[in-house]
Design a binder for these strands. Structure first.
Length: 402
DNA sequence: TGTCCACTGGAAGGGAGGGCTT
DNA sequence: AAGCCCTCCCTTCCAGTGGACA
């Protein structure tokens, strides 16, 4: 096939999608079916700003992944901004996921960038200087700023709740601007990590999100697919299957939407004219794999090496490993690859990280006379781990041995 | 009942990479 | 350019600990 024709084929191939972006994660729909209660709860809190009743309370939103917390927060804040506009009021907002920016410094830097459009150097500045900058930015606006902190548990587990405390207190210092915080977490026990003074000011209001059931998912998927796919492409039965699958996985709407998108892509590639149950089932496997793979690919080198060591243990049949044993394997992996191993103390921290990502489970267990250790276990298939890690060139060799 | 193992996890500090001030 | 101070990632040090075993 001539090079010039490679793309011809892909382009001429009649797409099954009408508007594919409707099936991506950052798409915010026109309305949020089955979340009317939550929408009105958040809206009624934020409405204080519209009524001129001063700063709205900080809000805390809990619920498992894919229950609509993130999209709802963005949705309501957007509505608030546009309603404000009609009343001649200005609001601004910032959205930040602390899973990827989990130090105080980086959170503040991101907020400065998003609210003030000024870039902050990656390191070098004292954190309190960045905090001052943020304060000035907010104050110069002379209006309410809504800060949405998603997956806020990552920040707190990694850096403590000092920053959160400072942010809840910042209104006392600000002269003109005001801040309302919307914290989002899928860790239902999150409160336990917080200092009481933070709970009392951050948890002024809280909204709990329950998982969607199969019927609700079906309805959501049907509405989305009407916009996303050309007519008669997606069979009703396929939507049923997708919603049933997602309902079983704690009602994760995001996963369900992924299923539709990937199923559509599979059908296109296989040059089908319809998306059926078959494609959904194929998509299911692929989506699961992709989530895990992307997570692993994004890992720092040392965590990948650790994961490989866990993979080696899983391969030899002893899935549960004490940290001491894991360290031996990990060190031989490092030797093989020509990397310097990190200390035992550091391994512990890395394991905690991997556990938060859901790639590993671990429990501290006592073996009485034989000491006390964390027992870790790989939660994903060793094969998939290797596949993902192979993308890192210099690890290929070792990965082959698994 | 006490001992003692094999760690865990907090605290402090070092050095690489970097910005700000003079 | 020098000197200072910062963050981030990591190390070193160490007190603390659950429970099998003597």
């Amino acid at each position: 096939m001539g090079v010039d024709r490679i793309f011809d084929n892909l382009l001429s191939n009649n797409s099954l999608f009408k508007d594919k972006k409707v099936l991506t994660h950052d798409y915010v729909p026109e309305n949020l079916p089955h979340r009317e209660r939550e929408v009105s709860e958040l809206a009624s809190v934020l409405a204080a700003a519209l009524r001129g009743e001063g700063r709205p309370s900080n809000v805390f939103m809990y619920g498992k992944s894919g229950t609509g917390k993130t999209v709802l927060a963005r949705f309501v804040v957007e509505k608030l901004k546009s309603k404000g506009e009609t009343l001649g009021l200005t609001f601004s907002s910032a959205y930040l996921n602390t899973r990827y920016r989990k130090t105080n410094y980086r959170v503040l830097a991101s907020l400065c960038e998003e609210l003030g459009g000024t870039s902050v150097p990656a390191t070098g500045l004292p954190t309190d200087v960045v905090f001052d900058r943020l304060q000035k930015i907010i104050d110069s606006g002379e209006h309410l700023v809504v800060i949405i902190l998603d997956e806020i548990d990552w920040l707190v587990k990694h850096s403590g709740d000092d920053l959160l405390y400072q942010l809840t207190r910042v209104n006392n210092i600000l002269e003109k601007g005001e801040v309302s915080l919307v914290g989002i977490t899928n860790d239902l026990k999150f409160r336990e990590y917080l200092d009481r003074r933070v709970i009392s000011s951050l948890g002024e209001e809280s909204i709990v999100f329950n998982p969607y059931d199969a019927e609700e998912l079906f309805d959501i998927l049907r509405k989305r697919s009407k916009i996303a796919f050309k007519s008669n492409v997606l069979k009703e039965n396929a939507i049923k299957v997708a919603s049933a699958i997602a309902a079983r996985e704690h009602g994760d709407a995001r996963r369900a939407i992924d299923l539709l998108r990937v199923a559509g892509e599979i059908a296109e590639r296989e040059k089908r004219e319809r998306v059926t149950k078959e494609e959904i089932l194929k998509a299911r496997e692929k989506v699961e794999k992709n989530v895990v793979k992307d997570t692993i690919i994004g890992l720092p080198l040392q965590e990948k090496l650790l994961l490989l060591a866990l993979g080696l243990h899983a391969k030899t049949g002893r899935k549960k490993v004490k940290t001491g044993e894991l360290k031996e394997t990990y060190e031989s992996v490092c030797r093989e690859m020509g990397h310097n191993p990190v200390s035992l103390r550091r391994i512990n921290d890395l394991l905690s990280d991997l556990e938060m990502l859901g790639l590993v489970t671990s429990n501290v267990k006592s073996f009485g006379r034989y000491g006390r250790s964390r027992v870790s276990e790989l939660e994903v298939s060793p094969g998939l781990t290797v596949e993902a890690i192979q993308s890192e060139k210099n690890l290929e060799f070792l990965a082959e041995q698994l």
